[in-house]
């Protein structure tokens, strides 16, 4: 069963009202690989991740995790599958009513019923992995800078040693140096866990650095996919325009010309 993809989406469609967000989207991620999906704002990237996690239910299509259709699972099996996942949210999404270490240990304490003392040790250890000292554990998320919040978010995502990690715009809103620090931390922690990752970003620096494979999403469809060293010679005008950041090209922004 070595060729079973870790994650597979088949013809997934989702619309909100009259707006089509995902349009017959198909995508596979192989075990242990890091796939990055690039695409502009509003191209359906976040919705795709949320469909896989079951936060949003697609209108059509099938989603497989380890060869099992997650849309046909009962709630118990579904929760079991969710334990394989960790996710780093765009804004961190830390719980502001809980301290930093409680945030990191949350999945262990609530999701896995681990004793608080033991979970705290693991939380401190994971914080150290992202370069934060034990004293940060006692602070609250509101007391941290944006870069530190991202790192805490990363520590929380890897706390339960997930098999699959999702990164939602991991470097957005950070300065270039902190972005690179986060990239390095992502690479290091993914390598250590041997996890499969699926990330969405529009930061090309980050995309080149942490990916094995790249795919581009446009208007709810995957329009190109390939190994990350082929991105510069994709032969696809849409991809070329995006990675070079040109306003002119086949992708038309929905703005009125002055």
């Amino acid at each position: 069963m070595t060729d079973t993809p870790k994650i597979e989406l088949r013809n997934v469609s989702k619309r909100f009202g009259s707006k089509v967000v995902l349009d017959n989207l198909s995508l596979t991620v192989q075990p242990g690989k890091s796939l990055i999906v690039i695409g502009g704002s509003g191209s359906g990237k976040s919705v795709m991740l949320k469909c896989i996690l079951g936060i949003i239910r697609p209108d059509k299509g099938e989603i497989f995790v380890d060869g099992k259709n997650v849309l046909k699972m009962g709630s118990g099996e579904r929760e079991e599958t969710l334990r394989k996942f960790g996710m780093l949210f765009q804004g961190g999404a830390l719980f502001d009513s809980l301290s930093v270490w409680e945030n990191v240990a949350f999945g262990l304490i609530q999701g896995r019923k681990m004793k608080r003392i033991k979970a705290k040790d693991i939380a401190i250890e994971k914080l150290a992995k992202v370069g934060l000292g034990a004293e940060v554990g006692a602070l609250y998320p509101a007391e941290l800078s944006g870069g530190m919040q991202k790192r805490v978010g990363l520590a929380r995502a890897i706390a339960a040693d997930p098999e699959i990690i999702f990164f939602d715009e991991p470097t957005t809103g950070l300065d270039p140096i902190m972005a690179d620090v986060i990239n390095n931390l992502i690479i290091a922690s993914v390598k250590e866990l041997g996890a499969t990752t699926l990330s969405i970003t529009h930061d090309m620096m980050s995309a080149r650095k942490i990916s094995d494979e790249l795919a581009m999403i446009y208007k709810g469809k995957i329009i190109w996919k390939g190994p990350h060293d082929k991105i510069d010679h994709s032969g696809n005008d849409y991809v070329d325009q995006f990675i070079n950041g040109r306003a002119e090209g086949p992708i038309k922004m929905e703005i009125l010309k002055p």
């Binding site: 936060i55 929760e79 949210f89 804004g91 830390l94 949350f106 999945g107 609530q110 339960a160």
Partner: peptide
Amino acid sequence: TMRVTEQIDALTTLSTNPIKY
């Protein structure tokens, strides 16, 4: 606020049912 800052989605990814929690 938890909804718009994705904290409710984060609960789901940490194997915790938001309705229950």
